[in-house]
Amino acid sequence: QPAVVSVHVVHRERVLYRYRDSLMEQLFRGSGFGPRYYSGLRDRVTGGSGFLIDGSGTVLTNAHVIGQGNVVRVEVSLPDGRVFEAHAAHRDEALDLAVVQIEAPDLPVAPLSKSGDILVGEWAIAIGNPFDLGPTVSIGVISAIDRDFPERQGEYFYRDMIQTDAAINPGNSGGPLVNTLGEVVGINSFIYTGGEYSLGSIGIGFAIPVEAARRFLDEIRTHGRVRKPWHGIADLQDLTPRQAEYLELDSTDGAVVGGVTMDSPADRSGLGRGDLILSVNGEAVTSASEAWSLLQGLRVDQECEFEVVRRGKRQTLKFQVVERPVGPGWN
């Protein structure tokens, strides 16, 4: 628990304010122009959790805890009361992981599990800062593993997730899920709440497995940044019943390629508009959304194999994922 931190992020955003000056209201009253507004800046503070993974001050958390847009300050609070301003953030939007750096002596470290072997039913402990109350511990079990979500959860696709009934609430995101040895097995990320008006835990929470975090950290240590993968598939669509009948298929499973960027890895493999993707690296595709989920999990230099249907015939296409080129117009 000493290595688990609270993360507070200050976002500066542009907002519209309504004129409150009585003279302005009198001038524009009855003019037909309605209320008058002016533009201004406002700071908005969001929070979450994280944990120290080494003595040099590296804090691992969720990308959605850091957020996007104009981040002006990130503060990291330790359980011992020390507060530090963090810097040098790296984010992987595909994995929903991020790291920030603090500079401080005598930092505790949360050890990462060296084995990915976790069992359904074993004890699980969630640690974090729910509702900004401060360091909080809850206990439960591993309810399931390898949970895939073909539909977006917020802004992210999640795959191979760990499910737990340990209480996870808003503010727990980015905190560790640990085993009884105190080793981190997952990064708490999101929950099911039972309805859009409910905010608290109902015993169905999900954590990113520590193996994904290791890949993310290795990428930063090796390349000094997160390389953005690029395959070149620009558009995917669901297969309609009419298209399935035309292709003489028994179901509407799959994703129809709507566009491929010229001279991309997918283009060079022969993948083209109108091809039907049935599987990606051996995992069946049931919809365009699930195909995007699988594609988003691809890493730079990874080999990718597609099973496709083209003009009624099945084919296997292969390519290697590369780093996204820099410049406008790349998909």
Rank of each mutant, 00 (worst) to 15 (best):
A144G: 11
L27E: 09
P135S: 07
R225M: 05
G274A: 06
A288F: 00
D117R: 12
L60C: 04
G55M: 01
P130G: 05
F216Q: 01
E211D: 15
G116E: 14
R29L: 00
G254F: 02
F216M: 00
G154K: 00
G47L: 09
G30Y: 01
P130I: 00
I168N: 01
A291Y: 06
G140S: 04
E283F: 03
P328Q: 06
I187S: 10
D218V: 14
D267N: 12
F306H: 06
V308E: 03
D253W: 09
N70S: 06
G34N: 11
L317K: 07
Y17S: 04
G81F: 10
T46N: 10
Q101E: 03
D21T: 05
E183R: 06
C304N: 07
P35Y: 09
L217V: 12
N172C: 01
L95V: 01
I187Y: 02
R159D: 01
N281T: 14
L247Q: 14
N281P: 12
R242W: 02
K318C: 00
L298F: 07
L294A: 03
P105G: 00
V83S: 10
A124Q: 04
L78H: 05
T261G: 02
G34F: 09
P130L: 07
G175Y: 02
P325H: 08
D238C: 05
S77R: 09
D218N: 14
I220H: 12
N331W: 05
G258N: 02
A213D: 04
I127Q: 01
I208V: 10
H8C: 00
G175Q: 01
I202W: 08
L199N: 14
I204T: 13
R36L: 10
D106R: 13
L27V: 15
G57N: 10
Q1Y: 01
Y37K: 15
V5S: 06
V5C: 08
V9A: 04
F33I: 12
V285F: 00
L199V: 14
V72M: 04
P35S: 06
V65E: 05
S198V: 15
I191M: 00
V72D: 03
Y197P: 11
G40P: 10
S198F: 12
W123M: 12
G47H: 05
A63K: 12
L276H: 13
E25K: 15
L16C: 04
I118P: 01
E25N: 15
V178S: 01
S22Y: 12
D146V: 07
A255E: 00
R82Q: 10
A126L: 03
D106K: 08
L317A: 11
R147G: 07
E248Y: 14
D263H: 03
R73T: 08
Y197Q: 15
S293N: 04
A207K: 02
G174P: 02
F84Q: 02
A126V: 02
E307T: 11
